[in-house]
Design a protein around this nucleic acid. Structure first.
Lengths: 232, 232
DNA sequence: TCAAAAGTGTTCATCTTACACCCATGG
DNA sequence: CCATGGGTGTAAGATGAACACTTTTGA
């Protein structure tokens, strides 16, 4: 195949997107990484991502790369920050627009990637060393996740559609790294008025089964438009 | 001069930075714009910004372009968002990393730019139509400014070194677009414990002169490290 | 002496926090 | 019948919101 060449009057940096994908396991906030199969950093773990294609938006690039490398689709994805130190890639100047993503790990168990790469979930305390400046990107993402969770009910993105209040509380405790009083947490959460109580309860538990709740997206949108705050 | 050509295996987008610079006038939040002297959008007003150079970080690009086009230096500057729709520039695909900046307008009166371009401050209700998607960028910046002001005392960046509590209150009222009770505002602001009361008062006012205060950056940094909240 | 803004406290309602026991269920 | 987590209320303290008058100063 003949390599097509593209020529510009001025030198240009390469542009990529990278995604920090968070998933909540039973007791851990996990990160989705892929093992690189090319240089540089061959064999090392890295955030899923890759080069932008012409004609696609930056958002679309993030979605596409995430899908290609991890099989994930239709998940919560928002732009995080753009990293542009000239030496962050040893080959040449590469600017990366980082995204952060939340998935429900129950529905997205560790899976083979669609292409040849190895993808796996890692807990915070089992993280391998990461390629490029991905450690820094991850740090920024964790900071953003913590900050966001306090003011927006994004926790729903990390849980199954139907969840118990205790699951939600654990989520807050894990991400914010604090203990929370059960009664106070429930009062606050229910007062936000964005939960729908279902008639169902947990299954297959060796104790009293907890009620399942759903997130009321419509009500949430309505309240958001009214400028209601969702601080927890 | 011979044009130097740069050739790549894959097509690359161009990369620019743009800055939304806010300044506070007596009664208005103003935006700094420059008038374009080249196509496209020649003659139209736009955010200051331009193409990244090789070897410079994205942050440095924003600082450099801001300085070259407006003469501003050493001002509060933070990354805002990256805009990457493929059609935002009619010439070709251009990704722009937008920044938002705050300056004290008293010290940075409308000035001629250092290069040939025309730079001017515009109030919200006198805004000309903007080049590219700069209207959208501006909207995002305003939203960010509002959001940030509630949780971080960045108002200081928009005021002179020494300021009165009433000036600060006006700043909040203008940016948040609400009226604020004077006594409650003062109580809250002083309780943050990041103001130094000077012995000086306003000069040349035809009424009782107000005390001047300074922002205590050291104390603020210390409190920030302790994780104190600065919600107003 | 007047105009204009500076400066200052209290009350009431709301929210936050701390805290402990009974209940339902499955094994 | 026991172990496990589910589910619930109250009181005390802290915080937020509403509200009006006196003081200082220069013109």
């Amino acid at each position: 195949m003949a390599k097509k060449k593209f020529t510009y009057e001025y030198e240009r940096p390469a542009v990529t997107t990278d995604c920090v994908v968070f998933g909540l396991d039973e007791d851990d906030l996990k990160i989705l990484l892929i093992q690189r199969d090319i240089k540089p950093y061959e064999g090392q773990w890295a955030l899923p991502g890759g080069f932008i294609k012409m004609g696609e938006s930056v958002d679309d690039c993030a979605k596409r790369e995430l899908h290609e490398e991890t099989g994930l689709n239709n998940i919560y994805l928002e732009q995080l920050y753009t990293f542009g130190s000239p030496n962050r890639d040893p080959r040449e100047q590469v600017i990366t627009i980082a995204y952060f993503a939340l998935v429900n790990l129950i529905d997205h168990r560790p899976q083979a990637a669609t292409d040849a790469r190895n993808a796996a979930w890692f807990a915070q305390d089992e993280l391998p060393s990461l390629a490029f400046d991905h450690k820094e990107i991850l740090a920024k993402a964790k900071q953003r996740l913590k900050g966001k969770l306090k003011y927006e009910p994004i926790g729903f993105e990390l849980l199954p559609k139907k969840f118990t209040l205790t699951q939600m509380q654990h989520l807050y405790e894990i991400i914010l790294e604090t203990k929370i009083d059960k009664r106070n947490f429930r009062k606050k959460l229910l007062k936000l008025d964005i939960l729908i109580e279902t008639n169902e309860v947990e299954q297959d538990v060796a104790r009293r089964a907890a009620k399942l709740y759903k997130f009321d997206q419509k009500k949430y949108n309505k309240l958001t438009k009214q400028g209601i705050n969702f601080e927890i």
